[in-house]
Design a protein around this nucleic acid. Structure first.
Lengths: 345, 345
DNA sequence: ACACTGGGCTAAATCGATTGAGCGTGTTAT
DNA sequence: ATAACACGCTCAATCGATTTAGCCCAGTGT
């Protein structure tokens, strides 16, 4: 039950716990501990496989070597993949990750923050839900390192790592236009957060640039909380009524529901309805026809997030870094009006 | 920076920290604290939004209200979904989750356990990598609640929640036979862990039951560590050389690679090569043709895992529970030799 | 011979909560 | 009248590591 403590080592080495602590924390020189004693202590610590009790250490120092990761939905492909990278990178620095999903619900998000706070995590990676300005500010006030991801809060000065949503959406929409689609719609979430706004803005800007009038009712907004069936129903109704010939789906799960919807209407993706989705996914790659998408550089996102956090934790604190990475347009078959010699399925 | 402590409350209430602790832990009656004092303390605690410091509490009591979740790969659809359920369920009981991925690598798994141990997690949910018998036994020795998932260790007496892999594979394979496929292969991992073994056994048993001779070289084993490209290459080579007319893919990512491979060979899934994969996935549902699969009851798996753990944590400790849930065969188009009026894509 | 310096190490306080032992005071039983 | 007990609460130790202050001894300078 009990682990090896610093006292056990002290006893065996015939020195005080203080000395052991100094040595194990690499302060031997600084604290003028003799080499003999140092080596002896290190040897014993090794033999006993001593691991410091993180609770005790944390209680005293206030550092827990734990990061809090708050995502929208850990079961979502994008977030799960980022989480994996974050975990790996954090591990390299000796940090563990506590996670939680907000379901894009502010109350749930606040609850998570609360819990992480009194668990004393050292740093936060947050996919903010709406109305969380105060909470984030509060973290800054108490000098806790915070990196926002996927989206940021325009009125809060903080680090963040996102992709260029405007460019991504712009490229996707332009591509649809260039492929000859005439009436292009967008299906997005009801969220008015910055990432969704920018995707919508990119969409509108691309239309404008190509001289296509923008009609408000090609924009369909669906709430995150709705279930799968309701989503597809709504999408089907939208497609029926607006008669768009191409759709930009502003996030991955909408793209997936979109595929389902279009197909269940008996329409052909590409010839009848062109589509592009934000985020890549195995499904998009392997679907027939394959789905054109705006792919986020997940590896780099994860790495940069942890990087920033580590810099902050090492007090190399600087002004807020705003990392805007470039997404990539993966052109596939879902944006071709004429059916090619398709890969056989 | 500093939070509200029990001392602050004690000062304001004009009582000792001990009394505050008793009241806040619901021991007022037991410890004979007067109602007046009790109420006063509770009121102050509320006003100050007191949250106990979990580190201090953990240091003293040995309980951290944290669970360790060790999965094979948090970015994998199946595990990510289970993780989500686990997180939700744990939250209901006031527990947080620390997670890590093993990549099916025993050393990484051991490292994770080590870390979780000295972080003093209260209970473990483990997808064991091979050769972890000793580590699990050790946890049992120190009376830490453990629930294994996805697979178990035959020589270790512990709780576990798995699906009936044999039945799942048996049903999948039988279905292939019944659909008229004659030469059926299986692609699995190099792992000789129980879940994979049972899937293979189920496969073999189904062949036997249908009077089909089992030839060892229809079994292809691929190591987890290999990258995507190598996987598909190997699968393609296998398909070319063995000339099977249907394949059972023993886990989700193999199924995905399988789709890629078959298609890149210019073969039609269904008519040319039938296929079933273990685990469900959006991709399998929406692929054309859709992919028949053995679907695991993810919600229930997650719920049962947390359930078991909570029972243990509340010392209702009993004999080891072995929960074997039933998977469902989702029959789709990938196991039809004749092309139906396919849903247009 | 005495103050001073610096090397090598330790005592004790501290972080915040929990908990076994115990201390007055008033009431009851004998 | 006095032991015995209930009541209502507090003291102080404890968990394990960190950290500040400082002790003791040897050598140096004057």
């Amino acid at each position: 039950m009990k682990g090896i403590s610093i006292k056990d080592i002290a006893r065996q080495a015939g020195v005080s716990p203080t000395t052991v602590s100094f040595v194990l924390n690499g302060k031997a020189k600084e604290k003028r501990i003799s080499d003999q004693v140092s080596k002896k202590i290190l040897k014993i610590a090794n033999k006993l496989k001593y691991k410091p009790n993180q609770l005790a250490r944390g209680l005293r120092t206030g550092k827990t070597k734990t990061l809090g990761l708050i995502v929208e939905d850990i079961a979502n492909n994008f977030f799960a993949n980022v989480a994996k990278v974050v975990e790996d990178e954090a591990d390299k620095h000796g940090y563990k990750v506590l996670y939680g999903s907000t379901e894009d619900n502010s109350d749930k998000a606040r609850g998570l923050l609360e819990v992480l706070k009194y668990r004393q995590v050292d740093g936060y990676i947050i996919t903010p839900a709406k109305n969380m300005e105060k909470e984030i500010e509060l973290l800054k006030m108490v000098r806790k390192p915070v990196v926002l991801m996927d989206r940021y809060l325009p009125n809060v000065d903080s680090h963040y790592v996102v992709v260029d949503n405007f460019q991504g959406a712009f490229a996707a929409t332009s591509h649809l236009v260039e492929q000859g689609y005439k009436k292009i719609g967008i299906i997005t979430t009801t969220s008015d957060q910055v990432q969704m706004k920018q995707r919508l803005d990119g969409f509108v800007a691309a239309l404008k640039k190509h001289g296509i009038p923008f009609n408000k009712n090609v924009v369909k907004r669906l709430p995150f909380e709705m279930d799968r069936a309701a989503h597809t129903q709504e999408i089907i109704r939208y497609l029926r009524t607006t008669k768009v010939d191409a759709v930009f789906f502003a996030t991955n799960y909408l793209g997936i529901y979109g595929i389902e919807s279009i197909r269940s209407m008996g329409l052909r993706i590409g010839p009848d309805v062109g589509m592009v989705s934000f985020d890549d996914h195995d499904l998009f790659r392997l679907h027939s026809p394959s789905i054109t998408c705006v792919s986020q550089p997940i590896e780099e996102i994860g790495r940069q997030i942890v990087n920033l956090l580590m810099k902050e934790l090492n007090h190399a604190s600087s002004t807020s870094q705003h990392l805007v990475l470039s997404p990539t347009l993966e052109v596939r078959q879902s944006t071709q009006k004429t059916v090619q010699a398709e890969l056989p399925a």
